[in-house]
Structure formats: structure tokens, C-alpha cells
Simulated assay, not measured.
Amino acid sequence: MTTGPDDLPDAAATGDVDVEGLLKRFGLSDKEVDTYLTLLEHGEAKASTVAEAAGVSKRYVYSASEELEARGFVTVNDHVTPTTIRANPPGEVVDRLATDAQSMRPALEARFSRTESVTEPFEVVKSRVTVVKRIRRAIGEATAEVTLSFPLDRLDEVADDLRAAADRGVLVLLIVTGVDEPNDGLSRDLTGVASAARAWGQPMPSMLTVDNRTGVVAPPEMIERSNSGKQGIVFSQQQLAPVIVGSFIGNYWPAAAEMVVADPAPLPASYTNFRQAVFQAELHRRSDDTVRAHVDGRLIDGGEAVEVTGEVIDVSQGLVAPATNDFPVQHTLTLDVDGERVTVGGPGAFVEDIEADEVELSTPAE
């Protein structure tokens, strides 16, 4: 008997291919992978069916399905009641992924030919012009958070970059240095430049961190004048960035005078940057809004994955005056989850109940 290609066992079915791993390489999260594979097994199903089989919330299934549909993995039939979700034929999905990957090749190769050889974890910079360029470029690439201290009389060199970052939803925390007497005029000048801005009259190095991974540290003389003979450091080490952020928020931010705090952002909104979630929750609560939070994360005690939803009943923070935290770098959301107080912290949390990966904030309809 002759065996043809169609008679051979599927590699994925025999476990020779790590389907979950490959899907993750195409940008799917763990839960998106679980949702999609569940849909493949059902062909077409209601969100509640998928949620039960995949072990996720019904709310998450709807959210994940929108992302999967945008990528061509599924089709959401929202013209019927209840809404159903149908897995697209795997052959079509694979063909689309292959086409997308192939179409990227010319652009990637073109960029590769223009790229500098290797990105070093540290770069010593002797030129003031180069330091400012590095700061501006890093701010322009920010997607979640910027912390920056910068001389007031040089702020115009980076103000547009900061304003653009704040406009696209980045949490921008700014300390302007060289300010002897903060005044209302300074507050007006700083409005829109940052999510929150403070003024500091004492000498302070220019410190930048972006998305908790890259940044710049430079002596104040280097930013204030050319040919100072000083050197700055540009770094791209994820181990170092949190240390710089901790110094910025823990040492300098509490001592500086608050000048500007932006209006709260519209909700609902999801945040992977926990400080942004805390910042927005605090602003909305100060506006007398009832705020609810849906948290994806893990238990501090044991590490199990967990999802919780509840009203934000307390915020411990030091981003907006007056501070309400017990120590400068503490940022905590306290939720009422079915009558139980549950505390939520960000990456590296140790005094809370849950370490959050993502927080969705909403204000319930009146």
C-alpha cells in the first residue's frame, strides 16, 4: 500500500510542533492562544462556551476575539443573537501569515542595512548636542512612561517631544530644575507638556527613563552649557532603569513643588503601565468619579494567575499631591471585590495581594 502526503499524520496532532509557541511568536498572548485553539475545536461557538472551555472570562473572549478578527484568525458574527465566533479555515490563516511575513522582508532588510552595528547597554556621550538628541529620540519612542528632569531654561528643546508623548497617552512625569520661585506663569507654561510636572530649585542631574528600559543620566552642567567637559551615560538595560525611576520618584519627586497635573483621561481604558493606572484612578476619584478596575495578574503568595474586578476604594500613591502612600515608591490600588478588600501592585509588588500585568479602568454608567 502506497502512502501519500495526505495520509501522513499531522505534525501538530502528534505533538511534533509547538503550536502554542508558534502562535505566540506571531504576537498572540497566552489567553489569545487558548481562545483561538478552543475556537478551532468548536468551529463556531458562543462567547460563553469559549470562555468556559478556555478558562477565561466571557468579557475577555469578546476582547480577544476582536484582536483575533483583526489578524484574520476568526470571524465575529455580531449580527446574530447571541453573538457567535467562528474560526477561519487554518489554511487561509497560515497563507495570510506567510504573506504578511514575506511582505515585511524588503522593509526589514532596508532598515537593517541602515542600522548601527550593535546596541550597547551603555554609551558614554561627551557632546551636549548628542545627549539632547538621545533624550529626544527616546521620548519619541516612548509607549507607556517617561520620567525626566531637565533645566527650565532649556526645556524648549524637548517640550514638543514631551507634549507629543503625553498626547498619545504616555504617562509623562517631569521635573523642571533651576526654579527658584515657582509661580502661576510657570504652571501655564507647563500645562500640556506633561501628565504631571514639578519644579525643583536645587542642583539635580538630568535623568531620563523611558518605558522602564532605556534612559539617560547627565550632569546638570552638561545640559546647561556646551563644552562643559562633562560626560553623560545613555543606557538600555532593563535592570538599571527601575533603579533610576526609583531614585526619581522616591528622592526627587516628593521634594519638588507640584506645578501641573493633567485632567483625567477618558475611561474605559486599559493600562499595562501600573503607575499610569494608579495615576488615572486617583485623578478620577478626586473628580468624585466611581472607578472600577479589572485586573489581570498573579497572586503574590503562590504566583497563580488571577483576574479580579471591583470598585477602587482606596489609592496609595505619590504621583499627585498630597501623597497618600506609606513610602515614596509605593503605588497600590485597593479594590472591593465582592465585599473583600484586595490590594493590587505593579511589577515587583511585595506588600500587596496581586501583582498586576494589566489594569482596565472604567466608570460605571449612572
Score class of each variant (00 low, 15 high):
residue 173 L to M: 11
residue 119 T to R: 15
residue 129 V to P: 00
residue 136 R to L: 01
residue 113 S to W: 00
residue 96 R to V: 03
residue 49 T to F: 00
residue 187 S to A: 15
residue 335 L to S: 09
residue 69 E to S: 15
residue 201 G to D: 07
residue 68 L to F: 04
residue 150 F to S: 07
residue 120 E to M: 14
residue 284 H to L: 05
residue 11 A to T: 08
residue 356 A to E: 02
residue 77 N to H: 15
residue 142 A to P: 06
residue 110 A to D: 13
residue 140 G to T: 04
residue 273 N to F: 05
residue 23 L to Y: 06
residue 309 T to L: 11
residue 215 G to E: 07
residue 213 R to W: 00
residue 182 P to A: 05
residue 317 Q to R: 08
residue 158 V to M: 05
residue 178 G to W: 10
residue 163 R to H: 09
residue 210 V to A: 03
residue 42 H to N: 14
residue 143 T to A: 13
residue 353 D to P: 01
residue 117 S to G: 02
residue 272 T to M: 02
residue 168 R to E: 04
residue 171 L to Q: 01
residue 262 A to V: 05
residue 232 G to K: 06
residue 150 F to L: 08
residue 60 Y to V: 01
residue 55 G to F: 07
residue 346 G to N: 10
residue 68 L to N: 09
residue 110 A to H: 10
residue 343 T to L: 01
residue 365 A to S: 13
residue 308 V to W: 03
residue 276 Q to M: 11
residue 84 T to W: 09
residue 11 A to F: 12
residue 207 M to S: 04
residue 294 H to A: 09
residue 298 R to Q: 08
residue 311 E to F: 01
residue 80 V to S: 12
residue 134 R to T: 10
residue 313 I to D: 07
residue 332 T to N: 01
residue 346 G to V: 08
residue 305 A to Q: 07
residue 87 A to W: 01
residue 329 V to K: 11
residue 304 E to L: 12
residue 122 F to R: 14
residue 276 Q to Y: 02
residue 153 D to K: 14
residue 15 G to C: 12
residue 260 V to M: 01
residue 263 D to W: 00
residue 213 R to C: 01
residue 112 F to M: 10
residue 213 R to D: 08
residue 101 A to L: 13
residue 10 D to R: 13
residue 331 H to P: 07
residue 357 D to H: 02
residue 298 R to L: 00
residue 52 E to I: 00
residue 90 P to E: 11
residue 230 K to W: 05
residue 121 P to N: 09
residue 364 P to F: 07
residue 166 A to W: 03
residue 295 V to Q: 05
residue 151 P to K: 11
residue 217 V to D: 09
residue 108 L to H: 06
residue 296 D to W: 10
residue 112 F to L: 12
residue 328 P to T: 06
residue 99 T to G: 02
residue 85 I to R: 10
residue 84 T to N: 07
residue 282 E to N: 14
residue 197 A to S: 14
residue 160 D to K: 13
residue 59 R to S: 06
residue 174 L to T: 03
